[in-house]
Amino acid sequence: MYRILSIILAVILWMGCTEKTGKGNPVVVIETKYGQIEIELYIDRAPKTAGAFLSYVDSGFYENTSFYRVLNVNNQPSNAPKTEILQGGLWRTKNDKARSIPGIPHESTATTGIKHKDGIISVARLAPGTANAEFFICIDDQPGLDEGGENVEDKLGYAAFGKVIKGMSVVRKIYLQNDRNQYLDPPVAIYNISRK
């Protein structure tokens, strides 16, 4: 009996090496100089976007990249709707790689039901279907980024695909660093993003 319990315990510990949430969604960890940020990826609700992001994580694309852009109430035109986000990815450190990644088919907030609330992670884009490895984290609720929102000219919104579940204080600390013309000065290094 003791041997059977030992085997069962070993299997349970082995299965727990790659953390998933109660819904079976994967969790990734962003490592920065200010600490770690844990994000649950909603692969169940945004399979194309979360799946693409996870493939970039597994391919090592985010090793030695950065958080480089911040939008806050002080660095946007006074006559425009405001957005508060922290943006990161490959653009500043691996630009050629960033431009070589194909776009992800757009999954709108109306389709996924994932609204741009505090701590939600989403992909940056120009036109729908052009998003790839550049991502942003919402600071407070940002309904203007949802489908139909006032912050997106085409009204199709951005594709949200996960949420910070631990380390939002780290996100806010990075968000409050010095910026110049919406760019962090200096950028904050992302040492790596990996599965938990």
Rank of each mutant, 00 (worst) to 15 (best):
I101C: 03
T21E: 11
Q87M: 07
V171D: 02
L184M: 08
C138V: 07
V70S: 02
L156D: 06
P143S: 11
R99L: 15
V164L: 04
F67E: 09
M1W: 05
Q76R: 08
I104R: 05
K117T: 10
P77D: 13
G35D: 01
A189W: 06
I30G: 06
N74E: 13
Y175I: 00
V27L: 07
A159V: 02
L176N: 14
P47Q: 09
K97Q: 15
K155F: 11
L156M: 15
V123I: 15
Y42K: 01
N74Q: 11
M1F: 08
K33W: 00
G88K: 06
P102H: 02
F136T: 05
E107F: 04
N181Y: 02
G149W: 01
P26V: 12
E147G: 02
I85T: 09
G60C: 01
G24V: 13
A50S: 07
Y183M: 11
F53V: 03
P143I: 11
D118C: 01
V188P: 00
I39T: 04
C138T: 08
Y42A: 03
E38Q: 15
H116C: 03
A10L: 15
G89V: 13
V164H: 05
I37D: 07
K155W: 09
R125K: 01
A52T: 10
G113A: 08
Y62I: 05
V70I: 08
E31C: 11
I193C: 01
A131I: 04
M1R: 11
L145C: 09
D58I: 10
E63D: 14
G119K: 07
L86S: 06
P77I: 12
L41I: 00
Y2W: 04
G24L: 13
A110F: 01
K163L: 06
V28S: 01
G35V: 05
Y34R: 05
E84P: 00
G167R: 08
G129E: 12
M1V: 12
D146S: 13
F53D: 03
L86G: 04
V29P: 12
Y56V: 06
S122I: 01
Y191L: 07
D146A: 12
N64K: 11
Q76M: 03
A159R: 07
C138W: 09
I165V: 14
G24M: 13
Y175A: 02
K23V: 07
Y191A: 11
A127I: 08
L41R: 00
A159M: 08
N25P: 11
L13C: 12
A189H: 08
T21H: 10
I4N: 15
V70Y: 03
T32N: 09
E134T: 14
P102A: 04
D140I: 12
V171S: 05
E150H: 13
F161C: 06
L176M: 14
I104S: 00
P81R: 03
I43C: 00
M168V: 00
C17G: 13
R92F: 09
E150Y: 14
A80T: 11
I12T: 14
L90W: 00
S66K: 04
L13T: 09
G113T: 02
I85K: 02
L71T: 07
N74K: 11
Q36Y: 10
F135I: 15
G16V: 09
D58V: 05
E63M: 09
E84F: 07
L41K: 03
D146K: 01
L126K: 13
I39V: 14
S194V: 10
